[in-house]
Design a binder for these strands. Sequence first.
DNA 1: CTCCTGTGAC
DNA 2: GTCACAGGAG
Length: 321
Amino acid sequence: MSPYSVWVSEVMLQQTQAITVIPYFNRWMKRFPNPKALADASEQEVIKEWEGLGYYSRARNLHQGAKLLVEAYRGELPNTREELCKIKGIGEYTLGAILSFAFKKKAAAVDGNTLRVLSRFFAIEEDISKGTTQKKFQKLAFDILPDKEPEVLVEALIELGATICQKKPRCLLCPLQTGCQSRREGREESFPVKVKKLKSVRLVRHPLLFIWQDYLLIRRCKEGEIMSGLYEFPYFEGETLPSKIEKYVQDTYFFKAAFKKVLPKEKHSFTVHQVTLFPQVFTLKSYEKLPKDYVFEKIEKLTLLPFSSGHRKVLLSFIKN
DNA sequence: CTCCTGTGAC
DNA sequence: GTCACAGGAG
């Protein structure tokens, strides 16, 4: 296997089962036997060879990558992490696969198969959907590699995951069944741990900072409310235009406020909500009455009050600016 | 982190 | 018709 053919096959295998890839791979290698041949082809010819495989941007990435190889690397695939990274469509897994299988270097290539095998073998309970966990698996997968022929183990882990340590593991057939910690504990089906992400609700809010002399208007969240006991600025909910906010201010608070400036946006989240805050500052010349639950508080005393985290960020950025 | 891409299982 | 998958990109 030339480095180029490893690259092509790994990219094809990113999205498709091997059984489907094989005929495509064979045709591809006949039509574009090396990076130069691929680089010289038109995009249409390239896509034509890919037709039916789906994820066409990956064919375009191969094409673009081949051109880069011809321009910058004498038509050969480079053999370092740093150079390979420059090719689009080569992420952490494919990088490791190329270093390992094409250049026989000691490099981890962690795909979904490897993840199942390692998480079960070592009974690793961390959530694999997290980036930090992925990094830990990368390190672990590297650390267990021998110095001699490391690519054999890299391939073995992938192969074991593909054939035996599947989603539903076939432990009775597994050569590692005695060494496997999760199997010994009878909980192999609990791995890998993946916290299913509940789809979060995005909210846009416009906190309104009303300055009156050296006071700011705040309100205390009532009992039974979310954020109960915490203070917050009055805010307008939803995407909107500045003019609508002015009207909202008049209708809601019964006072005339002059727009002063916007503050940098802040993000914060609670439970399933992800809130982006677009705070803006107004000045008040005078006021007659305040809506219920609202009070003016001296600006220097505000930091002593408990605020919800998003509004605290807004407060701090207001003080800093 | 979140989003994107097509597919195939439900 | 909805969701999980699997890897990459932003």
